[in-house]
Design a protein around this nucleic acid. Structure first.
Length: 281
DNA sequence: CAATCGTCCTGCGGGC
DNA sequence: TGCCCGCAGGACGATT
């Protein structure tokens, strides 16, 4: 499933390729994917020029010059590619946004993904924007501020990293990579974290996301950039999906477990559970 | 099943 | 000590 790094790769592609283009047609092959429903969807889109490509967590935002903004949400395994022409199998895509210059964005294989159009000044009405915490890349708070976000909570770090209202953009794969880089066990409680551990967590978040973006993202399922490139980060993952392989730090066999109901990969040596503090008499 | 959001329920702490 | 309220966190359902 695409997470923050993959969406940043997509955003950069959109910034390079579609800013200034004017929408000539908005085709919907799969109704549940768009909001509002046609024909209101087309009314908000057709004739509008794209002015900016932004990202908020896992949501990519395309601003239009008519006061609306397009929210792109890839969901579990979708991708968005730029085709040379509308004639290129438009029925294969769930959604096609065609431009006056003959190019077109095709949204394909969106699972739980969708495209919404909202007035730009009402973006907060969408909970994925309005309830989102700071972006884990662009707005990552310093370690000391992370205590306000994670350090007071009595949930497992695994669940906290996945909580989009705490920090936005981290999903299951990068939560595994971050916890390994930070040498923290996923069941560590937020409130148990020392200052040094919060610093490690901060650095791990930054480093894991930045490294993935530099690799063009990781394509676990169907993600590609605008041109169909999958990205090279899958082969650089340290623990995610690597149960039975050797930890790149210490060689110990990587183990899979479930934490907060999610597949979780750890090195049992690098990521030891904090001892449960005995209650004093 | 996948990931996320919304809803519902429980349990805990604080205030009185 | 006991009760109520509010909130945090966990479970569960809906979504495609």
């Amino acid at each position: 499933m695409p997470e923050l790094p993959e969406l940043e790769v997509l955003r950069r592609g959109l910034e390079d390729e579609v800013i200034g283009k004017t929408v000539s047609d908005a085709i919907v092959n799969k109704q549940p994917c768009v909001n509002p429903k046609p024909p209101a969807y087309q009314k908000a889109m057709v004739g509008a020029k794209i002015t900016a490509a932004r990202r908020n967590g896992k949501i990519v935002l395309l601003d239009l010059d008519n006061g609306h903004t397009l929210l792109l949400h890839l969901g579990l395994g979708g991708r968005i590619v730029l085709r040379d022409s509308l004639l290129h199998d438009p029925d294969q895509a769930q959604i096609v946004i065609a431009f006056q210059d003959g190019s077109a964005l095709h949204a394909e294989r969106l699972m739980f993904g969708n495209i919404h159009v909202l007035p730009t000044d009402k973006l907060n009405a969408d909970p994925r924007i309005g309830n989102a915490g700071p972006d884990a890349l662009d707005e990552l708070p310093a370690a000391a501020q992370l205590r306000d976000i994670y350090g007071k909570r009595k949930s497992a770090l695994k669940a906290l990293l996945l909580d989009q209202s705490a920090l936005s953009g981290i999903g299951n794969m990068y939560s595994n990579e971050i916890l390994h880089r930070a040498r923290l066990h996923p069941q560590t409680l937020g409130a148990q974290l020392s200052d040094a551990e919060l610093q490690r967590l901060h650095d791990a978040i930054h480093d894991a996301l930045t490294a993935a973006i530099a690799d063009g993202g990781a394509s676990e399922t169907n993600f590609t950039d605008l041109h169909g490139n999958k990205g090279r980060h899958l082969e650089h993952l340290r623990v995610h999906g690597r149960a039975g392989e050797a930890c790149p730090e210490c060689g110990t066999t990587i183990k899979e477990l479930r934490v907060s109901g999610r597949p979780t990969f750890i090195c049992p040596r690098c990521q030891r559970k904090k001892p449960v503090r005995r209650r004093k008499k």
